[in-house]
Design a protein around this nucleic acid. Structure first.
Length: 435
RNA sequence: GGAGAGGUGGCAGAGUCCGGUUGAAUGCACCUGACUUGAAAUCAGGCGAAGGGUCAAACCUUCCGGGGGUUCGAAUCCCUCCCUCUCCGCCA
């Protein structure tokens, strides 16, 4: 959520900036509502004031034994007026709330203006793109030749029987490497990057989803145990650990000395991928369920831009340690997520696709989520608590990292080398052989 | 699943039976000042949030888990939902 004052005080400038993200703010409708809100609020408060004053005098009169019947008669129609004013105000306020809730964050000034993915700007490239003197296989082909008694390394057919499309069963050394990757990432972040390891719920309530911005606008991307909009509170499967990790700060006031707070968690993530039926149907790239190691930082406002650079470098460190070539792009205004004011994507090289694919997304959300969550901090010389800033990033998406290793480390005979950094996590195994 | 207790300011904790001047006693924490070489201790004062209003104030409104109701008036009465705790049962 944006600061309401931004819309109230500099509506047109704000609308212009939002337009660079492809968001059309209905300025006329907003102004009309805001004007109504103001007059209705003043009217309502005046009526409430009158009611309060009269009620108090009734109380006094009663206490001193006077007859209160005439006083009661005076107030009789006040209640109806008040109710009408309240209803009208509530109506307008609800309409305004929709504006506030559905308006995305403002991009930082340095974010390149653009329409979509194609306008993202490459910042850096790392690593050598591997050259193969044989026909490269994609991770699905590779994994089919690495099996165990239970089945193929990546078994999509069995998963489809169990659950449906976009699920996977992993077997043997592939499953082992998947597990090893998550352990490795957690160890690096906790031991080298200063993150606190956290275990979180995978089912969350709608307040949490609202806090990080998934609701009310993006509910169809999630799996719900029952409709979250219904009364009675259905819980939803987390689409990312960002949701539980960030909401730890909800309705909390931190001492400034407690910040920055850096947290990391390994969780499964669940996404319905409602809008992507035709895309990435083969392999592990786009699944309804995937594992991810997430990093979240809660920081002082003036530190959040530096923190974004730092957090992104933490995700890069994993790719570098694994020796995976990647590039870092800054997302343009049109491609950024709803709550972000600046986002870097890390894209790993996938030989079989002959292109870079997203493996991490690191965002500074500014105070956007904090305002929704009422996540604040206070220092000794501050009179009032202020909103803190939140950041999050994948460090990394585990499934896609597995894909990248299988494809980048494949050898002519179909075997796959284990990246050096991962060998200790694979019980000393240096190579996964064809079976 | 059964039985009971409870959700109040940064925290702890009164008030709820018998509705009125209670945004809320008290303690802790915190801030300012006095005393002190400094600190501690002591004393005096201050100290919730959101919104409106103002140059700034004054001032006004709302908020005692969420929602609804009764009433001129609700932290206090009624309904409902959520959550926490204790005991019993079941269980990884």
């Amino acid at each position: 959520m944006l600061d309401p004052r931004l819309l109230r005080n500099s509506l047109h400038e704000t609308a212009e900036v939002l337009a660079t993200r492809g968001f059309k703010l209905d300025v006329v409708a907003y102004e009309e509502l805001e004007e109504k809100r103001k007059s209705l609020q003043i009217e309502t408060q005046d009526l409430q004031n009158e009611r309060n004053t009269r009620s108090k005098s009734i109380g006094k009169a009663k206490a001193s034994g006077e007859d209160i019947a005439p006083l009661l008669a005076e107030v009789s129609e006040l209640g109806e007026k008040l109710d009408a004013a309240k209803d009208a105000l509530e109506h307008v306020q609800n309409a305004l709330n929709i504006f506030y809730q559905e308006t995305p964050n403002l991009p930082a000034k340095e974010v390149p203006v653009g329409k979509d993915e194609a306008d993202n700007v490459e910042v850096t490239k790392w690593g050598e793109i591997p050259k193969f003197d044989f026909d490269v296989r994609d991770h699905v082909d590779i994994s089919e030749r690495i099996s165990n008694q239970a089945g193929k390394g990546l078994d999509f057919e069995t998963a489809a029987k169990l659950s449906g499309s976009r699920f996977v069963v992993m077997n043997g050394a592939i499953a082992r490497m998947h597990r090893a990757l998550a352990q490795f990432m957690l160890d690096v972040h906790t031991q080298e990057h200063g993150y606190q390891e956290v275990y979180v719920p995978y089912l969350v309530n709608s307040d949490s989803l609202y806090g990080t911005g998934q609701l009310p606008k993006f509910g169809e991307d999630l799996f719900h145990t029952k409709p979250a909009t219904e009364e009675g509170q259905g819980m939803s499967l987390i689409p990312t650990a960002e949701v539980p990790l960030t909401n730890i700060a909800r309705d909390h006031i931190f001492a400034d000395t407690e910040l920055p707070l850096k947290m990391t968690a390994h969780t499964p993530c669940f996404r319905s991928e409602a809008g992507s039926y035709g895309r990435d149907t083969r392999g592990l790239i786009r699944q309804h369920q995937f594992d991810k190691v997430e990093m979240v930082q809660l920081v002082l406002p003036e530190q959040s831009m530096d923190a974004l650079e730092e957090l992104t470098s933490h995700a890069e460190a994993i790719l570098q340690k694994l020796g995976l070539p990647y590039r870092k792009v800054i997302l343009c205004t049109g491609d950024m997520g709803f709550g972000s004011c600046k986002t870097y994507d890390l894209e790993v090289w996938l030989p079989a696709q002959n292109t870079y694919r997203e493996i991490s997304s690191c965002s500074n959300m500014g105070d956007f989520q904090a305002r929704r969550m009422q996540a604040r901090y206070k220092s000794k010389d501050m009179k009032k608590p202020e909103l803190l800033h939140t950041l999050n990033g994948s460090g990394l998406a585990v499934g896609r990292t597995l894909v990248a290793i299988l494809e980048n480390y494949q050898q002519a005979d179909g075997s796959v080398k284990v990246p050096e950094a991962l060998v200790p996590y694979m019980n000393g195994l240096t190579e996964i052989n064809v079976t």
